[in-house]
Amino acid sequence: MGVIIEIPSALKEYVNNQDEVEVDGSSVVEALDSLCTQFPELKPNLFEEDGIVRKFINIYINDDDIRYADGIKSMLKEGDSIQIVPSVAGGFQ
């Protein structure tokens, strides 16, 4: 199943400067795996070494935080989009 992953500007450089990438996957982890296979440099930015999502990154299915669903195992429905939102600190840039 095709799903759109929206990439934040802080991570765009790892995905050839695209705003969004369409991947296959029926769960968040499948979709992110497929994204990281295409763009291996992205992986250490999204995941800790033990495979958990980095704590300064939140992942949403549509507008819901996956931490309050089934985490990265959360299932996707047709038409869902995944949003990756990293913590940013700037007040001036």
């Binding site: 949403y60 507008d63 935080d65």
Partner: peptide, 20 residues
Amino acid sequence: RLLLYDAMKMNFKEVSVSKD
């Protein structure tokens, strides 16, 4: 709610923020 603003796409999105 966390409001996300993208100046280049000129769009606003909203995601929910829950108490952890």
